[in-house]
Design a protein around this nucleic acid. Structure first.
Lengths: 254, 254
DNA sequence: TTCGTACGCTGTACAACGTACGTTGTACAC
DNA sequence: GTGTACAACGTACGTTGTACAGCGTACGAA
């Protein structure tokens, strides 16, 4: 199970489709990288929020009608395959041109685009944000999203480091909201609480944990049932925009 | 590998240490749950950010000088063990009483406490936030943190659902900052970029991705090297507080 | 036309994982 | 003394990623 020689350059070359100078000898390849990635994406999509984890070499090979080891002639290993899938999902995401619109609108568009991405491919919300993929998809996405910050960066006098931090800030909140939305889908059915209620009733002393019991009940009920499910989303988005707006007009912030 | 009968009630009982009416027959137990959890925590701590993933039944058993299957008499399975470890880390975290302080100070304290938690146990930053553990540690933490929002909730007229959303908002940003900090530790050394630079130079066209190249370089250099590493942290915290402040005095926000 | 060889493909194998199952041995209740 | 409840554990199964060596194909050179 130890990973193979993980050569970052090889992975990057694959991401950017820099075909290595492969000779024409031997049998023709039965697949190509795009087909592998496309099928892998479909398989991950079928696996729900943990789709990337349930994407296994053996299952992908079976889906492609090929022996497991064959995939290793297309991809260095499982981790690199995941990178390719993630980057492809970024590349395929639509990006609306909001040039000329007010900065709040532009940032809202970025947020909505990422929300849509996390909905189309739930596993994107669980990608480790601290390890950039550096593929063409991620780069195009990054460029597009940084551009949406042009006006705010001007107004607030953000340098490049702060601009990156502001974008990260926005995306973090969007991702967190996506995770909440995923968690409340299906899991938080009445039977989820029903299975836990007996023990919780014995153990959650309202005198010892007054706020936890009250707020937890309210929050659980709100997101579980018919209360509009967009409330948490709008809350987070509004907080982010207001937080960034404070850099423009720092009047009320101190 | 399919999990066993995951009985939520049994897991909760374990978390809250509701000892089942075990008879005194048979050999005495050689361990107790607290020792198992303590050793598991130490093992996870030794595994870095992915410590919870590298915590395996076999390794824990070896550490405890016991056969792997023995652990199953203490804990239903690996997942429940992870829950116990996580909740114990919450329970052990210090919680300062900030009653009477201004709300920004109280929220900052909560943020700092969580930052300290993610530093002491890096794997806590990778716990799925959409699946509450509902143990005594998490409950105490939740109660404490909700209390820190008392004044803000008053000032801004937050109901319980919004109070929960506001806390989640704060914790999400703190967790994201912790992940960034973890990612930039060690990984982002000069050789990390050095291994990727040749391909990136060929592929990152500054005309096609002007902002991405410029901002990415700046951000990478800033967090990688000697620039003060707390900058992203302070940025995120300030944005969160300002975002929440806008609910108190909504003057500049629209 | 023949043949060497580069290369796509795959069967087998291994280490590590979680954990089901059945056995062993201990120590209390009677 | 003896029956029995229960902790501990040896073995085994299915699953994972992937190393390795062999097989067979089809092109380049003769």
């Amino acid at each position: 199970m130890p990973p193979m020689t993980d050569d970052p350059a090889r992975t990057l070359a694959l991401l950017w489709r820099l075909e290595r100078p492969t000779g024409t000898r031997g049998p023709r390849r039965g697949l190509d990288l795009d087909a592998v990635v496309a099928t892998a994406t479909a398989l991950a999509d079928g696996g729900g929020p943990d789709g990337l984890a349930t994407l296994t070499v053996r299952r992908l090979a079976a889906e492609l009608g090929v022996a497991p080891m064959t995939l290793y002639t297309y991809v260095p290993g499982r981790e690199e395959l995941a990178d390719l899938v993630v980057d492809a999902s970024y590349a395929a995401a639509p990006r609306a041109d909001t040039t000329g619109r007010p900065w709040r609108e532009r940032l809202t568009a970025v947020a909505e685009e990422n929300r849509a991405l996390h909905r189309r491919h739930p596993w994107t919300a669980r990608v480790d944000p601290s390890r950039p993929v550096l593929g063409p998809g991620e780069t195009a996405k990054y460029e597009h999203e940084l551009a949406a910050f042009d006006d705010l960066a001007d107004l607030a006098g953000l340098d490049d480091v702060d601009r990156d931090a502001a974008l990260t800030f926005l995306l973090d909140v969007v991702r967190a909201a996506a995770l909440v939305e995923q968690g409340s889908a299906g899991d938080d059915g009445p039977e989820w609480w029903a299975a836990r209620a007996p023990v919780l009733a014995r153990v959650l002393d309202p005198e010892r944990y007054p706020r936890a019991v009250r707020v937890g009940t309210a929050a659980g009920a709100a997101q579980g049932s018919a209360r509009d499910p967009d409330r948490a989303w709008r809350f987070g988005l509004a907080r982010v925009l207001d937080g960034l707006a404070a850099m423009v007009s720092p009047g009320t912030t101190r």
